[in-house]
Amino acid sequence: MQKSIPLLMIVPSLLMAMAIIGYPILDLAWTSSQEVSRFGKLTGFAGWENFAEVFGDQLFWDSLWRTGIWTFFVVVGTLAVSLPVAIILNDDFYGRGLARVIIMLPWSVSLTMTAVVWRWALNGRAGLLNATLMDIGIIDQPVEWLATASTAFVVEILVGILVSIPFTTTILLGGLSAMPQDTYEAAMVDGASGWHQFRYITLPLMKPFINIAIVLNVIYVFNSLPIIWVMTEGGPANGTDILVTYLYKLAFRFGQLGKAAAISLIMFGVLLVFTLLYVALVSRGEEDAAPEDEKEA
């Protein structure tokens, strides 16, 4: 009885959350099994037809592959930059407050605006980036960054990393400031170098925070439309399309809402599977690592 009271107390909010999260998903699943007119009217049962069409579409598979690349590199790149940044910002130095503000600042600008600014900056003739690079002599001809898919996609990943840094740094800073200082003092007494402290104290203790940063970033980045949409609309020649930009075109340009619903359901499934797998992997890893007596508690 005692144990069930807390459970009972969260039941109402749990139900509400399930309704709010669950209803759109059910509606989406329903839509994806229907023939849908250009204006969202359901015109008949389609069964698996929408899915069959999606799976038979080469652009879908290309976009799926590119979504994987996009998500992997943005998330890994973000972590690789954010962790050192967070460690530096955690140290006490003159002007730290200002440095923290500067790192956080991009967060306050909407993604779309950031993307618009980069689109201008990357303009071949009039862009600031080419002008700067030519001034300091790195290139002598303007580079059309967004003209080919290969350079455009790399640039978009870099911008994706840039805009993900503030959020990730915040999570990691939170973890670092909760770190027990006496462990470091003990390690220093034992003669551990800076790298050893990082490798054997910081990194293991930061693991839960890094994990949450990975999961949340994967979800955000996987679903992120504005950067790619504003900079190239998935072009040239669909070479930078990820699932969400392709989905947007299908739904709002071509009016294929059924097919678009099927893709968003697939995207939801991919993310769900990833999150479950990742959480399972992480918790198993933690159990293996935990000493016996801790397991008891």
Binding site: N123, G124, P142, E144, W145, L146, A147, G235, P236, A237
Partner: peptide
């Protein structure tokens, strides 16, 4: 102009 695939209608008109 070089690399037309980076030029929208407005970009061309602006040039």
């Amino acid at each position: 102009q070089p690399s037309p695939t980076n030029y929208t209608r407005e970009d061309v008109f602006n040039m």
